[in-house]
Design a protein around this nucleic acid. Structure first.
Lengths: 157, 157
DNA sequence: CCTTGACCTTCCAACGATGGCAAGGTCCAT
DNA sequence: ATGGACCTTGCCATCGTTGGAAGGTCAAGG
């Protein structure tokens, strides 16, 4: 089976199949004399596994762990469950963050006349976050502190 | 005010301030003789606006639009509202997608013993999505169709 | 005056997952 | 033999953000 057929059969694009191979998520496919990648039904099975896991929002790194457990007949289901629970927790956190954003915006939007006049509580809040709309200071995903203000012995002029 | 002080005062990292300047989101700051960027209280005000908008999940492109409206005293609040509503819709869609993922996973996790045994419905579902857990086929954010299967007049051997 | 260290500058690379395009080789039916 | 669908590799773009390197500046303290 060629890569295009494997792509059709698995729902993973040919591009991504090559990418997964290059990054080591899946083993390198065998090649024909002409250099074409060759796939078996089993390979497609693996690809479908990957596809499904992506659909469930697992990162490629997580899928790597899941694939190893999948292949390991002596795995402990606890390990699988841990990965899944961690991912659920991640999803819940992101959902909560986005719900808070949406809720705040909804509040602001409701106060906006949405006509030809310039006055708008949305812009007003962006300018000076109101206590009501600001909520607890949240950290965006992946955001990390700056190196921190290193102290100067005497204040800057 | 130096960039570091503007960063501290606005909550936007110095790195990002330079980035926003380079991409044209904010105007280029004036410079000292030595080439240091110089910021005013008003610049910090703009940066806080940007920061707040990022916290609410607006993309940089959307913030660009919001900033222009903010600066325009003859803006129509309807334009602001439209951007906000579009963003809310986007958030809701993503929330729904993630909730579905989390729900499916929660189902699977509940069926997993999470002990030393290898049997695990989570892996089983990844292998062969069950109708119950599969749901309607959803499209991941940004996912786009492959070029499509171009038809071969006769089937491949 | 010189050193130190905190700060600033620019430039380049990386992340994650995916798509797009280009230049070239292969396979197969007509 | 020709055409066209397919394959190959490789590089670029996305998006927002961080990290680092190499080097210049500034102020305080010895």
């Amino acid at each position: 089976m060629n890569i295009g057929q494997a792509a059709n059969a698995s729902g993973v694009s040919a591009k991504m199949i090559r990418y997964y191979e290059a990054t080591g998520l899946i083993p390198a496919a065998s090649r024909t004399d002409a250099g074409y990648r060759n796939y078996t039904e089993n390979d497609v099975h693996v690809l479908r596994f990957v596809r499904r896991a992506r659909d469930l929002g697992f990162s490629v790194a997580e899928i790597d762990g899941l694939l190893q457990l999948w292949r390991n007949r002596r795995r402990r289901s606890a390990d699988v469950k841990r990965i899944a629970l961690g991912h659920i927790e991640d999803l819940r956190q992101r959902i909560a963050d986005m719900q808070e954003m949406a809720g705040t915006l909804q509040q602001l939007v409701m106060g906006c006349s949405g006509d030809d006049r310039p006055d708008c509580p949305i812009l007003a809040d962006l300018e000076q976050p109101s206590a009501a709309a600001a909520g607890e200071p949240k950290r965006r995903r992946g955001a990390v502190d700056e190196p921190g203000v290193r102290k100067r012995k005497t204040p800057r002029r």
